[in-house]
Design a protein around this nucleic acid. Structure first.
Length: 117
DNA sequence: TCCGTGACGCGAT
DNA sequence: CATCGCGCCACGG
């Protein structure tokens, strides 16, 4: 298990029942911003994680087909309500305690990503 | 070592 | 709203 994977897995395990989070938020909280794609990898790799609590940006389900149905069912079972196709993050997104110490999400200087194209 | 691969994210079409 | 394009980045072949 790489440190990135265990950090992400540990972060996901912090999301309580009845709450959700997003790939980007998990990656950032784990100390690896911009690694949202790896979150999905970890979900597939590590067993026993509350995978259904991880959604795409905006609170949308990223899975397709029956898995998407199952995810929605599981979330509603634990009290998460949907607004159409998505979860109202304002209400259900889990706030990770800010990691003031280790793994500074934003070291210093620039954040040059120039979005989109 | 290079290359394809994502349960991603976001602006532009 | 549906799609596309591009950045992102660890992994496995």
């Amino acid at each position: 298990m790489t440190p990135l994977a265990s950090a992400i897995a540990a972060t996901i395990r912090q999301v309580p029942r009845g709450r959700v989070s997003t790939y980007g938020a998990v990656a950032k909280a784990a100390g690896y911003p911009r690694c949202s794609r790896h979150v999905s990898r970890v979900l597939n790799l590590v067993r026993g994680l509350p995978w259904q609590r991880i959604l795409g940006s905006g609170g949308r389900i990223s899975l397709r087909g029956e898995l998407a149905m199952e995810q929605r069912f599981l979330l509603e079972s634990e009290g998460v309500r949907f607004k159409g196709r998505q979860v109202d993050l304002k209400e259900f997104e889990h706030r990770f305690p800010s990691r003031a110490k280790k793994a500074p999400a934003r070291p210093v200087g620039g954040k040059r990503r120039h979005t989109g194209k």
